[in-house]
């Protein structure tokens, strides 16, 4: 599904991502872990077109996507959430999710200006679809709430609903459990499993080891932008390099 080959990105003297290669299979839950500053979010920004790599390739279904802006990647079925929430606080929760359906709406300019029946129908369908997604992620009771009035945990789920609304083939979740309590994290784990069960490939950056180990099929451990280890949860748990990096031994 996604193939990253020899990816390289530096900021000044800092080598944030260093000759990194890995491969995510379709339908997998693939986790990227590593200490703070290991380059996880940089990697996500590279994969979603927010940063341009210095060198290397990123293949989405065999096609090189380096250099494409995020909006075009979204059209190709790649969507993400953010570590520090990116919610449109000037809209309602439902409108945020409806925004996610943007690429599926072919509202012409004139129908929009004149609010023609075709537009009304497509907007109604869009609203129902978005409401169903909000139910799916568990913020069904915030439909009409202004996003700015929602609690943090619900906003995290709202962002996932918005990403799902774009019907991605691959969804990248940047620290979805950060700031959540135990119960919320458990619900999130179930949600990620449900998303993967629908055939969506999930790539996640996460610090919550319990969550990562129980949910992901494959893990990539980064340290100083380099691949420290890659494998299934059991392999990673036993890997001496990983233990050293995490315990500082």
């Amino acid at each position: 599904m996604i193939e990253v080959c020899d990816l390289d990105k530096s900021f000044g003297g800092l080598h944030a991502v260093d000759q990194l290669s890995f491969c995510v299979e379709a339908g997998q839950i693939y986790a990227v872990i590593g200490p703070n500053g290991a380059g996880k979010t940089t990697l996500f920004n590279l994969m979603t077109g927010l940063y341009i790599p210095d060198s290397g390739q990123i293949l989405l279904e065999g096609e090189n996507i380096v250099g494409l802006p995020p909006e075009q990647l979204a059209q190709k079925g790649l969507c993400r959430t953010f570590q520090n929430l990116q919610i449109c606080m000037n809209m309602t929760a439902l409108e945020n999710v409806m925004l996610g359906r943007h690429r599926h709406l072919q509202a012409g300019f004139l129908p929009s200006l004149l609010r023609l029946p075709s537009l009304r129908r497509s907007e109604r369908a869009c609203r129902e679809r978005a409401a169903a997604l909000m139910d799916f992620v568990g913020c069904g009771n915030y439909l009409r709430t202004e996003a700015s009035a929602m609690p943090y945990g619900a906003l995290k789920r709202l962002e996932i609903a918005r990403a799902l609304a774009s019907e991605p083939k691959v969804i990248l979740l940047d620290e979805p459990a950060a700031g959540l309590n135990g119960a919320e994290t458990a619900a999130l784990e179930q949600l990620i499993a449900d998303i993967a069960a629908q055939g969506v490939t999930v790539v996640l950056v996460e610090h919550d080891m319990k969550l990562v180990m129980s949910i992901s099929q494959r893990l990539l451990v980064l340290d100083y932008g380099r691949k420290l280890a890659e494998g299934n949860p059991d392999e990673i748990r036993k890997n001496p390099d990983v233990i050293a990096a995490y315990l500082g031994a």
Partner: peptide, 9 residues
Amino acid sequence: SEVAARVVG
């Protein structure tokens, strides 16, 4: 959020 708009296309 401009970046949020961009990542959904």
